[in-house]
């Protein structure tokens, strides 16, 4: 009975650490798989870049329009 206790503890440790690591390793594999799938089929960042570019184009147009208006005002 006395000696059993430490051995029990070691058994708990082996099982516990084993489960934690197996869980996390599967989780890592699934995370990697998920990000590959998502980047392949639902590419979000590209859409972002496109909208960003159109945004800057619009800004340039607006800036051009404003500066044109200012020069017109000064000349007039």
């Amino acid at each position: 009975m006395e000696t059993n206790l430490i051995i029990e503890g070691l058994k708990f440790m082996a099982l516990g650490m084993g489960t934690v690591f197996i869980f996390l390793i599967i989780l890592i594999a699934v995370m990697n798989a998920m990000s590959t799938i998502i980047h392949k089929f639902f590419p979000e960042p590209q859409a972002n870049i496109e909208t960003h570019q159109t945004g800057t184009k619009d800004n340039k147009k607006i800036i051009a329009a404003i500066s044109a208006a200012i020069t017109h005002h000064r000349e007039g």
């Binding site: 430490i6 503890g9 070691l10 708990f12 440790m13 516990g16 650490m17 934690v20 690591f21 869980f23 996390l24 390793i25 890592i28």
Partner: peptide, 15 residues
């Protein structure tokens, strides 16, 4: 994996 290794604190203390 680092978060897993730190759980060794739990089971080490159990022993």
């Amino acid at each position: 994996l680092l978060g897993g290794a730190a759980q060794f604190g739990i089971f080490g203390t159990l022993v």
